[in-house]
Simulated scan of single mutants.
Amino acid sequence: MLSTTSLALQYGYVKISYEGLHQATNGFSSSNLVGTGSFASVYRGTLVNFERPVAIKVLNLKTRGASKSFMAECKALGKIKHRNLVSILTCCSSVDYKGNDFKAIVFEFMSNGSLETLLHNTIEDSESTNPSLNLIQRINIALDVAFALDYLHNDSWEGVVHCDIKPSNVLLDDDMVAHLGDFGLSRVIHGAASQISSDQASSSAIKGTIGYIPPEYGAGGSVSAEGDMYSYGVLLLEMLTEKKPTDHLFGEGLSLHMFCNMAIPDGITKIVDSRLLIPFDEGQRRITQQQNMEDTIRECLVSFGRIGVACSQEFPNQRMSIKDVINELHAIKQKLSC
């Protein structure tokens, strides 16, 4: 087991102890718990060495794969830096007060929570400035995630596949800028570390979350950038419709992809989140200066839906490229801004 010191030295992080994290979260109090996942629980905390609140991801080491997830995330985020990726601040590999192994990762705290919460939380917080997401905000978020994927796939140190693109892994900061997080399932796809072990290869079919996993993974295919594009396409369609891919509406013979594909273009207004039909700008002000705004919004919704459908095609070689996605989203944003 790597110690806190060796991890800090290996990845250049500030050293932090279990005691420090225990104090930062008031003993990992439930009042500071902001989320739970397959491998970990996330707490909000305050550390002496950091001016702003932090998010502390505590691994559940009793869950199979949690330790591998910890090391994969430390390795990935220790070498990749981008405006639209969640930044790792430090990590801890130690023992708790009972002598049990303890692993945690400390990230920037994202004050506006996850995309999943903003899309699906029906209780509007009267103190929130963003109780729901309008069309322009969703396009900006889609662009932010696309920028992150373009960097990971094409510009990062060795090429990285995220393997778990979904709304709960898209986090929003004070300015509603989206940051892609949770690299516990990530894989390097080329370069010196591109060889996937037999253990990784055999488990590739379950890398991801049900509803977002590309069909080739289910057939035992290797992880790939095209796999991330499939998950991203599903995410876009979820942003468009406010329906999860696991919604009770979908099952035998019908998927979120098919549901949207059949409705585009003529039935677009029947399937979209109704809040997207209201013309608001990024400051939540109603847009009145543009004539035929309803027609423009409809056209943009159709274009957005077509991108999601194109990315979530069944076969990898049919999926839209990330570069084309970015260009198309920019065009939609420009049309709304005219």
Rank of each mutant, 00 (worst) to 15 (best):
I322H: 04
M1L: 13
F315V: 08
C74P: 04
Q23G: 06
L135V: 00
E158N: 08
Y212C: 10
S303Y: 09
T63N: 00
K62P: 00
S6R: 11
K207E: 13
N154K: 13
D247Q: 11
Y217Q: 13
E108L: 05
V234F: 12
I210V: 15
S128E: 11
V58I: 09
L171F: 05
G283I: 01
V188Q: 03
I196C: 06
S17N: 07
F102N: 05
R83F: 08
I271N: 10
Q284S: 07
A142G: 12
G20W: 00
S17E: 06
L276I: 01
P265E: 03
L21F: 05
D182C: 05
T4R: 12
E73V: 00
K335V: 06
H82I: 07
I210S: 15
A205H: 11
R138P: 01
V34Q: 02
I297D: 02
T209L: 10
K207C: 13
Y11A: 07
H162I: 08
I307Q: 09
K75A: 05
F250G: 00
A72C: 12
I123A: 12
C260L: 05
G113K: 04
I264W: 03
N60I: 00
N292P: 03
L21A: 05
L135K: 00
I210R: 14
K79I: 10
D144L: 05
A178M: 04
V160I: 15
I297L: 12
D199H: 10
N26T: 04
T25V: 10
S87C: 01
I206N: 13
S128V: 13
G184V: 07
F183Y: 09
I332E: 01
S38M: 09
I189R: 14
L149T: 02
D175S: 10
L256F: 02
